[in-house]
């Protein structure tokens, strides 16, 4: 039996013009052209997309979930980045 399976690709779909590409899942394909075509057949059978990106899964680098707490910690104590942090007098309009 052939043990050498086709590489894994991650698929990103733009559902309509003006929106960003969003990850929808993955699939196997021998090359990029086949990955795009398979992505069309697997993920857009009901007009879910107007554009497809594929990238070989091995090229994706991700943050480490075990270190998520420390990694995202710097943003946790900066409430002043949000507009709701500031008191605006009721009589002030358009702010």
């Amino acid at each position: 039996m052939n043990q050498q399976e086709w590489p894994l690709w991650e698929v990103f779909i733009r559902s309509k013009q003006g929106l960003d590409h969003k990850h929808v899942g993955s699939l196997h394909a021998a090359d990029a052209a086949m990955a795009v075509q398979n992505a069309r057949d697997v993920y857009t059978r009901r007009l879910e997309g107007v554009s497809i990106w594929v990238v070989e899964s091995k090229h994706i680098h991700a943050s480490n979930p075990d270190e998520a707490a420390e990694f995202f910690d710097p943003a946790a104590d900066k409430v002043y980045r949000h507009p709701t942090f500031y008191d605006v007098p009721d009589s002030i309009k358009h702010m």
Partner: peptide, 14 residues
């Protein structure tokens, strides 16, 4: 099994 040659050919082509 009958699709094995297709999978191999596609890989070789790529």
């Amino acid at each position: 099994e009958e699709g094995a040659w297709v999978r191999e050919a596609a890989m070789a082509h790529a």
